[in-house]
Design a binder for these strands. Structure first.
Lengths: 249, 249
DNA sequence: TGCCTTTTTTGATCTGCGTCAAGGCTTGGC
DNA sequence: GCCAAGCCTTGACGCAGATCAAAAAAGGCA
């Protein structure tokens, strides 16, 4: 889910695969070893479904590379995205063997998986894995609640600005640039339709508001997906966030 | 937060205060004893603020009686409620000492509190407390995500029906009646304005839609707050949920 | 009981966003 | 190079829900 705090790679941790830090930031080497023994990789192509809501879910894992979405659909086809899964984000939940949401790969995705039951055993033997998962889940909860404000109370323009500003910051963190308040460049990982599903809008409205933000100089576009934000502070203002970006302290 | 699974009182547990089950459903007696030693009570009157976003938060705890709301405000006054705290719900988070949301008592509220740092120590010594908190947090996350669908994709009428159906079911669980699908009676714990803040609507729209549901025989009102649902299945259909109520399996 | 405040309902009007429709741009296959 | 299939943009129009306004209920408390 979109949240800066849930994600951190220590710059000196090139040898420590992202999957391990995602599962447990404080793992000692023997615990990493235990994780190592039960892990396996799965690859998915862009557009492929990783899991359907209601399916039996016999693994948990984390995204190693690529982007996936977590979404919920109503019977009549209305869809709401409830989470965006970026590298290091955790998928699945210990103690629940039925998937609650559809997970779809937006780009090619590599996941590092653990079979659920050995993972749960390990979690029970290794207290701070549960503690680490608790931290991550609390971060997800904060992100979900922040998004409730976006969905419930913001205008279409503010919604777009909120999404862009979160992606920009998340992208900056992924690439280990400081978020800063100056100019930021990134690629939009989502189609207009996916953005609409995330924001509770239609794709036409998304398109119109992006055009409007471009016309007003808040963002610059090169092609459809390559975005330049000349002034992050301006974008965050458009999003209706306070100066610190609405992120929790 | 509105979620059935996060809440359970064993019928034979009259001597086991709700606060302990809320913190740890599987506590052994000596662990309960440890919790007992660091707990204290706080009372709040209806309308009183329990904590403001940004405040230092030096306790965690659970609601023993009464109802409180968790909400987020924008600078211009727009407000989005992100959670409804009913008895047994947990407030605060280990590892974070700044409150992220406003917590306000809607009715008179009694909370069972634990100072944060002793609680965290206990959590580190007692692995399954962290595991229990993880379960509860995952339930909250599911509830938040379910609410994202309501906020992003449902019509005003469906939103009202969703809220009523969740409150009805939650109320049935609290009073240890089976949720059933027949007739249900309960008191609305929220003002129209609070409902509006929860649903991302205005209070006028809330009022109008409640009137419409009454006119259509989906609900019956006695006074402003006493609600009878003659047919829960009908209400859930109005909410746009599938027959099982949209709750996760 | 009667006054005052708060909450709720209802009406009239406005507007942001959805819906429907058409056309442009990009990419890949042949 | 041409065609087809996805994406994306833009326009015209309608409607659900917001906004503005006012009155009716429901409490509280002397």
């Amino acid at each position: 889910m979109l949240n800066e705090r849930s994600f951190s790679i220590a710059p000196d941790c090139a040898d420590c695969p992202i999957r391990h830090r995602a599962v447990c930031a404080r793992c000692e080497s023997d615990e990493l070893e235990s994780l190592e023994q039960i892990k396996y990789y799965r690859k998915f192509e862009a557009g492929q479904s990783i899991i359907w809501a209601g399916d039996r879910m016999d693994f948990v894992g984390s995204v190693v590379s690529g982007i996936a979405t977590l979404s919920q659909a109503m019977e009549d086809g209305r869809t709401q995205m409830v989470g965006l899964l970026l590298p290091s984000d955790f998928v699945g939940r210990p103690g629940r063997n039925i998937a609650a949401y559809d997970v779809v790969a937006t780009t090619d995705v590599v996941m590092c998986c653990f079979r659920r039951s050995p993972f749960e055993d390990l979690m029970h033997r290794t207290p701070h894995i549960a503690q680490r998962l608790l931290e991550m889940t609390l971060d997800e909860l904060d992100a979900a609640r922040e998004w409730m404000l976006v969905l419930g109370r913001k205008t279409a323009r503010e919604k777009i600005a909120s999404l862009l500003s979160i992606i920009a910051r998340r992208d900056a963190t992924l690439n280990m640039r400081g978020p800063g308040t100056g100019s930021v460049v990134f690629n939009l990982p989502l189609t207009r339709e996916a953005m609409a599903d995330y924001l509770g809008l239609t794709l036409e409205t998304v398109s119109r508001q992006i055009s409007a933000l471009r016309k007003d100089g808040v963002i610059e576009l090169e092609g459809k997906r390559h975005v330049t934000v000349p002034d992050m502070a301006r974008l965050m203002e458009e999003a209706g966030d306070d100066a610190d970006g609405g992120m929790l302290v």
